[in-house]
Amino acid sequence: MRKFYFLTVSIFFFSVSVFAQDQKWSVEASYPISVGDEIGNDAPGIIDVGVRYRFLDFNIVKIGAGINAGVFKKNISDEFEPVFTDFDETNWLIQPKVFAEFTIPGIQKLHPSVGLGYTYIESKFEGESYAFGSFENTVSYGGLNLNLGVSYDITNRLFVQAQYDFVRYRDERNSEGQEYTAEYNLGYLKFGAGFRF
Rank of each mutant, 00 (worst) to 15 (best):
N75M: 02
Q163M: 02
Y5H: 09
L110N: 00
S151I: 00
K62A: 06
F58E: 13
S34G: 10
G187P: 04
S34D: 04
T85K: 09
E122R: 13
P32S: 08
K3D: 15
N156D: 11
S26H: 04
R54F: 11
G149L: 02
N137Y: 14
G70S: 15
G142P: 04
L110P: 01
E81K: 09
F135T: 02
L110D: 01
G64N: 04
I60L: 14
A193K: 00
A65R: 00
E101C: 02
G194C: 05
E28V: 04
Q163E: 11
F197W: 15
F132Q: 08
D78W: 13
G45K: 01
N137K: 14
E183S: 14
Y152L: 09
F80Q: 11
E79F: 14
S34E: 07
Q161I: 00
D88F: 05
R157F: 07
I63Q: 02
D88L: 04
P32C: 10
I67P: 02
V150Y: 04
D22I: 02
S140E: 12
Y188M: 01
N75Q: 11
F197G: 11
E179G: 13
G36N: 03
G115N: 03
E101R: 05
N174M: 07
Q21S: 14
G177W: 04
S134Q: 07
V9M: 15
G70E: 06
F55V: 03
D78R: 03
F159H: 01
Y184V: 06
